[in-house]
Write a protein that binds this DNA or RNA. Structure first.
Lengths: 208, 208
DNA sequence: GTATGTGAACCACTTCACAGCA
DNA sequence: TGCTGTGAAGTGGTTCACATAC
């Protein structure tokens, strides 16, 4: 049953969760689909329909208990535990990822970082000892990590992804500008600012 | 007419363009929708349908001329010119964006960078003199920039976006973890690795 | 013969609208 | 009375399959 939930729905749940987190911090106890929708630019019906795939979390005539719904969403998404990640590629981009302070508070922890440059291997970046990428498989054998982050140039990215897949990584966050391929049991999401820019220009190119 | 083209189609065109660029570099002159689809994980029908919104670029029995189709796509997307961008937020993330070497080759140039931290204002980062964010509007009055990049913390991001909109920016690349709001004539795309991670965990949380 | 271009069929997601419950 | 939960209707996007063109 859970397999028939549209992926777009799953993609929206973390957005709802983030808004609820904010409301909770502000001390709000209850929110309805109307207000939540306004904050997120989503229709109230969308929110109610999305949530209905997983249960009945609201109270008619009242709305949703903020803390309760947030807990439910975290449960659904698997965010009640910590997730370990490995990073491959410690160039400019990789360093920024290591330094980024937005992962840890959400339970995503980078436990190892790899590169293929002898000048970088052995150095320490943001508290992480950089290891040779040749040891990726060995490291993943002894230290468990479910998620891989790819921050290498496009030319070597698919190879890195293949290694990660072979080592049992279950999800990949790909920063490389390629159409990455992975078997169906491995999830991939691309972070690709250039693609984002290149599609927005279509809409603004003839403005004013 | 161009207004009725689905946004998903526009989002795929840069992906096609990137693949064509690669094929061109490899010296390939012709490609068919079958092969292009295999490389990108897209069905051939999808590609043909997408392209049909804009014209007839192929030859039956043969396929598409790589260089020709690439030119057409660049024309359609508005990628035959340079685009100027302003960056607001020169923390860790902003520095990585300034240092990123993937924008310039694609014709996206950061022409000014702003921050609100007196310790950062006046310093030079990657060749950019960092200016006070108070001067954003004034700078945009004299130096034209169509695109804004937001790399500030979530709490201040919406304010920055509002300023950019007020100053006539037409598209925004938002790295802040918020549900950003902008008027319909301003395009926004979010770059949000945490959301990407938080949705992938749904699929992998019960694996093996 | 081969691969495009495209109406038509299909499928998926969104929105509607209201019954049902607090 | 107010807002959720949800079948049903509507909308939008994808895939099919074949006529068309090289």
């Amino acid at each position: 049953m859970a397999l028939e939930i549209p992926e777009v729905v799953i993609d929206r749940l973390p957005v709802y969760g983030r808004a609820l987190d904010l409301l909770k911090q502000q001390g709000r106890e209850v929110v309805n689909s109307q207000e939540l929708g306004e904050r997120l630019g989503v229709t109230p019906a969308q929110i109610r329909k999305d949530l209905s795939y997983f249960g009945r979390f609201g109270k008619q005539g009242r709305g949703y208990n903020v803390a309760r719904l947030l807990d439910e969403l975290n449960q659904i998404l698997g965010l009640t535990r910590e997730w370990s990640m490995v990073l491959v590629g410690v160039g400019q981009l990789g360093r920024a990822i290591l330094a980024y302070d937005g992962f840890t508070p959400q339970g995503f922890r980078i436990i190892a970082a790899f590169d293929d440059d002898p000048n970088i291997i052995g150095t320490t970046v943001d508290g992480h000892l950089i290891t040779s990428v040749d040891e990726l498989a060995a490291t993943l054998l002894e230290r468990h990590a479910e998620i891989g982050i790819v921050a290498v140039p496009g030319a070597t990215a698919q190879g890195v992804i293949d290694s990660m897949v072979a080592s049992g990584v279950k999800a990949i966050l790909n920063y490389a500008p390629i159409a990455a391929q992975a078997p169906p049991h491995v999830r991939i999401k691309d972070i690709d600012p250039v693609l984002a820019l290149q599609s927005m220009t279509f809409y603004i190119k003839d403005q004013d």
